[in-house]
Simulated scan of single mutants.
Amino acid sequence: MPLRVVLLGPPASGKGTQGRRLAEAAGVAYLSTGALLREAVEELTPLGLQAKPILDRGGYLPDDLMCGILGEWLARHPDGWVLDGFPRSVPQAEFLERWLGDHDQALDRVIALDVPMEELLHRIQARVECPECRWSGQATQASGDRCPVCGSTVSRREDDDEENFRSRHAAYSRYTLPLVDFYDQRGLLSHQNATASADEVAGVIHRLFFPSAVSG
């Protein structure tokens, strides 16, 4: 059975790290909408030009635009996926629910990564991203200044200054946090304390889906 999972959590909670690990373990596609949008901005695509001023102030793109983008992506990945960064609002969650129903698919689980603000602020000070494969993580996880996945040079994300982060966190609290109740009411939500090491968090998450497997 294809695995379909949504990861929720504030900026710097580890969604990218855990999403990639889970997708790889399950053999399904992984999507970071944040990385997708940042790539569009860098490449000056029509989407990127529309998104840049919104992202620069730490805002969210309009629901209709994001839903259109995700509908096209979902249609290309019928064999399962892990979503990081979508849905980001109740209307987006309702769109995903309708889309899955229309295509005889269902969401397996939603994992909410819980990290306090103090830890999040500490993480963004050392977070880096690869411009080639879009790996994102702590500088200590890179090999010097090299991406551990593809070997390209990593650097800090432009949107990881504290002012922008606080703006993104406020947007998360306003628009995305209500999804905790949305999915809890549907019996799909699992909370995960994400303050431990990435390996420990991954181990707990993987056991939700592969109880007999030992995660590395």
Rank of each mutant, 00 (worst) to 15 (best):
L44N: 14
L208C: 03
T17D: 01
P78M: 15
A171E: 05
R109P: 00
G85H: 08
H122C: 15
S32H: 02
D108V: 11
L188I: 03
E119V: 07
F95P: 10
M66N: 03
L36D: 01
T17W: 03
V154N: 01
V180T: 10
L208M: 10
V28G: 07
V204H: 11
L96Y: 14
D199E: 13
V204R: 13
Y175W: 04
T45L: 08
E158T: 06
R4I: 03
R168G: 05
T17L: 02
S173T: 15
R57M: 04
H77I: 02
C133W: 00
L49H: 07
A93G: 13
Y30V: 06
A202L: 01
Y30D: 04
R166Y: 01
V28W: 12
L113Q: 06
E129F: 10
L83R: 12
A126G: 06
S190H: 15
A213H: 13
H77G: 10
K15F: 03
T176P: 11
P46G: 09
R76S: 14
E72H: 06
P53Q: 05
L120G: 09
N193G: 15
G144T: 00
F209P: 02
H122G: 14
H191T: 05
S13F: 01
L36K: 02
P211S: 03
L120H: 11
